[in-house]
Write a protein that binds this DNA or RNA. Structure first.
Lengths: 251, 251
DNA sequence: GCTAGTGTACTGGTCTGACCAGTAGGCTAC
DNA sequence: GTAGCCTACTGGTCAGACCAGTACACTAGC
């Protein structure tokens, strides 16, 4: 590539960013593990030789990234947090709002990820995990009859058990995040549905069919049934013009 | 729900959080659109009746969430940014590090999402999009012969064109984010591979096969070929014990 | 002895006021 | 008309102060 040194544009790096970087490295490098505490702000300002404002701005950034949490009065400093998908959830939620993701896109994403999860679960699940899934479906059936308000939560539990059984943490987290967004979007509309009971019955039948395929080890069938079930469940809430994009996954 | 009002736990809400909330709502509600500027910090401290420290902490949080950017000396205040997947990328990267995602999980995720993208693209693509994909593959072939260092970038361009043609922004963004993480993880190992040239040739053959299936409108075939191609490309870098999880997607 | 209450020395959250380097844009001198 | 300066801002940083709250050692009462 053409001679001469290629200079990179330098951006002024602010003091609080350097603080963020150092703490971030310490956490990702394992020098600071979840549960441990940072020094107090006044101690940090000595260690970094910056003012407390700078320290505090750095802490706000770290907190926004979900790495630490500070609590007033804590004699120790800010606590290092274990990873949680909360910030991933947050950024994906604003993505959904700001980038104007349609319900159809979100549901389509769920159809892809959840069906992949069950395909994997069908092949890789342990006996223990299968048992958990069966119990979750059982609880779903019970919820439909006894406490319809708990139906949504029970449904989430089933899908989460399947996602866990897929053996892929990333799939598990992403299905969780997107699911909660979708659920939130359609929650009120479903609650108002006059045929809510019929919907629940059909949903349970679908879950049982998928479970049967899962037990039989037929991953592709389970995945196909799940996509179909999800389509049936959400199609009514999706704009007519976008429904074809969902049907493209039904083969 | 047994009688009596159900009180929700109140968490002390800090001043800067209220500022963040209000600005966030204004942005998500469309009152503030990308390109517009917030009032200056000193003006904001009057409007919110808080001190500048509080305003600044709020701005740091908003900045960490990728919603605004402030530039020293700007006579206007902080600029409202258009959405970018940067923060999603950031949180997923720390997820990969802190939650200890293995390369296998990341590749598996790519196999799922990219194959879903091409399945959708096969059915929903426009002629224009098909042309873009063909051109990207053509550029890939050229890169392999003329400028091997550009091969990686050309490969990215192909996958991105396919993701765009899927018609699902969420798929597009997620494939992009995860791809860049995977690429970074294996970059040096691939660069050191003595058989790099052979790898590129095989990769091009795979791309062409997938493209042929895409042109023929055979989405499932294209998806299957893509998963196989991706498996072949990455299998060597994945721990032996985890390879079976990847093979579970090859049916 | 042990417990219940008090004190105290911290913590984080917020405020005030100040300084600096830098930008933008009007103004002036040419 | 233009090139240069000047001023009035901006954000970044610092210093020092106060408050409400927590944790923990200490003390008074049993």
């Amino acid at each position: 590539m053409g001679g001469g040194p290629r200079f990179e544009p330098v951006r002024a790096v602010r003091a609080y960013e350097r603080v963020v970087e150092q703490v971030e490295e310490a956490i990702e490098g394992g020098d600071l593990t979840p549960g441990q505490h940072l020094p107090s702000e006044r101690e940090l300002m000595v260690q970094f030789s910056v003012s407390r404002s700078t320290i505090r701005e750095a802490l706000r950034v770290l907190q926004a990234r979900g790495l630490v949490r500070s609590r007033p009065g804590d004699p120790n400093g800010a606590e290092v947090l274990p990873f949680s998908p909360a910030t991933l959830h947050k950024s994906m939620t604003t993505l959904a709002r700001v980038a104007e993701l349609s319900l159809a896109e979100l549901v389509q994403f769920r159809m892809v990820l959840d069906s992949a999860a069950i395909l994997l679960a069908a092949r890789l699940r342990t006996e223990e995990q299968l048992r958990e899934i069966c119990e979750a479906v059982e609880a779903l059936r019970a919820a439909a009859e006894e406490d319809p308000r708990g139906f949504g939560a029970a449904d989430v539990a089933v899908h989460d058990a399947v996602a866990r059984a897929s053996g892929n943490k990333l799939i598990q987290i992403c299905t969780d995040v997107v699911r909660s967004i979708v659920v939130k979007l359609v929650a009120e509309r479903i609650a108002d549905d006059p045929d809510r009971r019929a919907l629940m019955r059909r949903s349970i039948r679908h879950h049982e069919e998928v479970l049967a395929a899962l037990r039989a080890g037929d991953g592709p069938l389970a995945a196909r049934l799940l996509r179909k079930a999800m389509y049936d469940y959400y199609a009514d809430y999706v704009d007519e013009s976008e429904r074809s994009a969902l049907r493209a996954l039904l083969e």
